[in-house]
Write a protein that binds this DNA or RNA. Structure first.
Ligand SMILES: [Mn+2]
Ligand SMILES: [Mn+2]
Ligand SMILES: [Zn+2]
Ligand SMILES: [Zn+2]
Lengths: 146, 146
DNA sequence: CTGCTAATTGATAATCGTTATCAATAACGG
DNA sequence: CCGTTATTGATAACGATTATCAATTAGCAG
């Protein structure tokens, strides 16, 4: 499981610092979430850990994702259809490219977001504190299938 | 109720063209949705029409918002917390500025979105077909209250 | 290593926004 | 005005998430 940047260690350290207990389930969930490039759902995390933790409840996954979110170590990407996905690799707001066919989610490096944020502030008088930027389309793999 | 651009007429015409019936409830809902600048929830629409239609069911509002959405005449802005808001003034994807204090939603005119879309396409290989761009912050009114 | 205590877990019930169901009503073409 | 059929209002069902609670276990003191 190739987590980069020591994200797993950062999450565990935050949990320890706040005096939460380090259960095997909790660590396994943190490991899946810190796996770069993926944006799994709670169901997918639960499914993925089924082999190692056959009795782990879905509620435990929900609870721990919620905990890590509240610690600022996991970012939630919620959609209108109710499906939520999680990114423990980059826990701060960043743009996404989302395939509407296979639901793959990428983290594109994007310039100009800061400028756009300032433009919104200038025009509306808002003090901008966060953003949510998604681009929907068809990924190369799905395009080839047509 | 100051709808601009004849949005109300456009919605009604689309409904007529598809041979759906023009009920008083349906027309009233269309009128609220075509009211520019607002982004009401289903509950707010229901509440707003309570005086004129005391017996109108919440389900009727849901149904008609869904209908107009499927006709491409109303855009849904869904949030992770489950709250959905609707824009019948601009039924195509466009950026929003959202106050995290009072939940007011504005439609800022924003340049550079098209360029950003192309940048994502170039970097990811995706064929971009849509987007969702929200900027969250504190509006001038709420800022003054501090 | 052992035992204590509070946090966590697993199982399940409750919640809440939305959608489906269905009998009664009403739009609209003839 | 009539008949057909969509629509409405009332309410049940739904599904993802959250709350509840007894049983378990991590972390720690002895
Ligand atoms: Mn991401
Ligand atoms: Mn809008
Ligand atoms: Zn794809
Ligand atoms: Zn405000």
């Amino acid at each position: 499981m190739p987590e980069k940047d020591g994200r797993f260690e950062a999450i565990i350290e935050k949990i320890r610092a706040k005096n939460f207990k380090l259960t095997p389930q909790r660590m396994a969930i943190a490991r899946v979430l810190s796996d770069g490039g993926r944006h799994p759902t709670v169901e997918e995390i639960h499914e993925e850990l089924r082999d190692r933790f056959p009795t782990m409840s879905l509620a435990t996954v929900y609870r721990n994702v919620l905990l890590m979110k509240s610690l600022g170590e996991v970012m939630e990407i919620g959609f209108a259809d109710g499906s939520n996905r999680y990114d423990g690799m980059r826990p701060h707001p960043h743009p996404h490219a989302i395939c509407i066919a296979c639901r793959e989610i990428l983290d594109p490096e994007l310039s100009g977001l800061e400028d756009m944020s300032e433009e919104v502030a200038r025009e509306t008088g808002f003090e901008i504190v966060s953003h949510r930027v998604d681009f929907f389309g068809i990924c190369p793999k799905c395009r080839a299938k047509k």
